[in-house]
Computed example of a mutant assay.
Amino acid sequence: MPIVDAPEQFNQEDLYLDLHSTMGLPVYLKCEGFNFAGSIKLKAATEMVDAAERQGLLSSDSILIESSSGNLGVALSMIAANRGYDFECVTDARCNLATRLLIEAMGSRVKVITEGHPERGLLGARLDYVRERCASDPRYVWLNQHANPNNWKAHYRVTAPAIARRFPQLDVLFIGAGTTGTLMGCARYFRQTQPGTTIVAVDSVGSVTFGVPAGLRMIPGLGAGVRPALLDESFVDHVVHVPEAETVRVCHQLARSGFMFGGSTGTVIAGARRWLAEHRPAGEVTAVAIAPDFGERYLDTLYHTNWVREFYGPDVLDGLSTHEQYTH
């Protein structure tokens, strides 16, 4: 077992779930989140803070500030607590309660934006608030995960090489698109080292990332109301958009097999299923999908039947066997 003296020093990089038995899919799910922050966002958070320190942007009185739907906020609050920085996480009402409580438990502040920008939605309003805070006080340092190249560099340096070592003949890689840091880092790496690997981006219906109209989205993580500055579509071979109701069903199906993952994972798996049915119906493929986190932080939303039925209709969980349904 490793011995660490800082929380970001530990991350399990090499665990994969074979989805054949649970979902009937020829996909290996790379399980991120076995670290003290509980998600893949630990890598980007560490890379961005390290770079800011190297560049002399942070001092003892600096206040880190970041817009986050949740997981990056947890990772940054953990690093800030360990290194002695103040941190303010700017999020919105879609952020899970458990996530907000985790951030506050580590001594950071949470600002919840309740009213979206008329054109750029809640994310646009969050970003406007961050800019206002930075303009009002020079102590604020905005890492800006939406445009910071160290976001994607973390996955170019760590995530993608780990996948390539385990699967040297990878046919398809499915990656969810949020800030597109994971997507861009992995896509760049495989374009250079294994150009035959097909990169499939998976996004939520209602996200504007790939040029489709904006729509209501309730599950945090994937998708965006503002096109990510990091995105370079030339590295992406295919894009799949998944309705959130389908995300919910996949997550519940996995949970009934004993595997609880977050909404981003459900979306990525649903996207992989759609893409494989169209492009590789015979199933003869070596495919990997990335699971950013686990499901415990979503118990009051994604895994709460009343919440699910309120937003996605009373029939969204129909068709699951009796033991696959929650009762509240």
Rank of each mutant, 00 (worst) to 15 (best):
N11R: 07
H328P: 14
V200P: 05
A154E: 02
E324R: 10
A201T: 06
A287K: 09
Q145E: 09
R83W: 11
E244V: 01
A125G: 06
M218R: 15
L320I: 12
F190A: 02
Y16Q: 09
G211D: 13
H155R: 02
V308T: 12
P243L: 03
S321N: 11
H117N: 10
H323M: 14
A147H: 10
A154C: 06
T114M: 08
T46Q: 09
G33A: 10
L222W: 06
M48S: 09
P138D: 12
P213H: 13
G24F: 08
L122P: 00
M1G: 15
K153F: 06
A277C: 09
Y303N: 05
T247W: 00
G73P: 02
N306D: 15
A147C: 09
V239K: 04
R94M: 02
I199T: 11
L19K: 04
G181M: 03
E8P: 01
V172R: 04
G107V: 03
A245Q: 08
R280K: 13
R54A: 15
A154Q: 01
K111L: 08
V49R: 03
A270T: 10
L299I: 14
V212G: 14
L276M: 08
Q325V: 13
E13R: 14
R297W: 07
L317Y: 13
V250N: 02
P220Y: 07
L122K: 03
D86R: 15
Y156W: 13
I3Q: 14
A135S: 15
G223D: 06
V172G: 00
T182C: 03
K43N: 12
G24T: 04
Q12T: 14
T197F: 05
Q12E: 15
L72P: 01
K41D: 04
E233N: 11
T99F: 00
A93P: 00
A45K: 07
F174M: 05
Q194L: 12
E53T: 09
V27W: 07
S59V: 13
P138N: 08
E53S: 09
I79A: 03
S257V: 08
Q55P: 03
P2T: 13
L58E: 09
E310C: 08
E278N: 11
Y129W: 14
C134D: 04
G56M: 11
G116Q: 02
T159F: 04
S264T: 10
G116S: 05
D318V: 06
V308A: 13
P26N: 09
L222D: 05
D86Y: 06
M260C: 12
Y16G: 10
I40P: 02
F294L: 13
D318Q: 12
A224N: 12
E32C: 10
V130Y: 05
I199M: 12
V212S: 15
D128A: 13
H323E: 15
M78N: 00
T286F: 05
V172W: 02
A255Y: 01
H252Y: 10
